[in-house]
Computed example of a mutant assay.
Amino acid sequence: MKLKNIFSVLAALAVLCVGAMAMAAPVPSQLGQSREAIEVAKAEIPATCNLLGYTTKDDESLITFQDPDTLEYYYVKVVTATSKIKEIEVKGATFVKGSTIINKTPNDIKLAVLDTYPDARNIVVSMDKDGNNSYYEAEFTTVKFKGEVKFNPATGVIFERELDYY
């Protein structure tokens, strides 16, 4: 009787272990979709960027890259099921937004946008403030996305970008 009880407990434990391992294994289609999402994201960012990681939540994957040359972080949102880019957000290595010195004109910023995104059109440049610091914000459209880029008014350097894909 005692041996029968031990055998029953061991059999139940084996079934639970096998079930737990089966549930913990990644679903091949999800793994393939994640790889596809990463490849799509890589095509839209500089080739020098390193993959830092990714997470999948609901129907979106957030893939994080860093450019070792500029230290910019690229946060790419991809619709996992379709492998279509939804948004790219680029954060620079600076913690201070803007400057108290303004050396650049709105026209300089417009030319900087065209230099970075040659197919940009409908460019609108405005000045914003963050505390005592001012910065330029340029909004524009391209064939693939609507962009919002923030520039340092003293240097004309981009410190933040948000690209919303159609």
Rank of each mutant, 00 (worst) to 15 (best):
V157T: 12
K146E: 12
V125A: 02
F151E: 01
K4H: 01
T56C: 09
A120Y: 05
V125H: 04
L3T: 14
A11M: 13
N50S: 11
T64G: 08
N122V: 02
K84T: 12
E36L: 11
F140H: 08
F151R: 03
D115A: 08
S83C: 06
E137V: 05
L16V: 15
V79P: 12
V157Y: 02
Y117Q: 13
G156A: 04
T100I: 10
A37H: 10
T70E: 09
V79W: 08
Q33I: 07
V143M: 04
T100L: 04
K146Q: 02
P26V: 07
Y165R: 07
V143T: 13
L111I: 08
N122R: 06
G53N: 05
I109G: 01
T142I: 02
V90Q: 11
F95S: 15
F65N: 14
T70D: 10
K150R: 06
T70Y: 07
I85C: 08
N152D: 02
S61V: 03
D59T: 15
I88M: 07
Y75M: 10
F65E: 11
V15P: 06
K146N: 09
A93D: 15
D130P: 07
A120V: 04
C49K: 12
V90K: 11
L71S: 15
V15I: 05
R35D: 09
V96P: 03
E162V: 09
Y166R: 14
V157N: 09
N132K: 05
A24E: 05
K104S: 04
A37V: 14
A37E: 13
I63H: 00
I6E: 02
F95Q: 15
G98Y: 03
F95E: 14
G147T: 05
E36W: 02
L13E: 13
K77N: 13
G156M: 04
T70G: 13
P118V: 10
Y74T: 07
G19K: 11
R161M: 14
Y74M: 12
A93S: 14
T105A: 08
G131K: 02
V124W: 01
T155C: 03
L31P: 11
P28F: 01
N133C: 04
T64W: 06
A20Q: 00
A25G: 07
P28C: 08
T55D: 13
I158W: 00
I123Q: 00
L163G: 05
V27Y: 04
A22G: 12
K150Q: 04
T80D: 11
E60L: 11
T142G: 00
E44Q: 15
V27E: 15
V96N: 09
M21Y: 12
V27H: 07
A14Q: 06
Y74D: 07
V124A: 10
N122F: 01
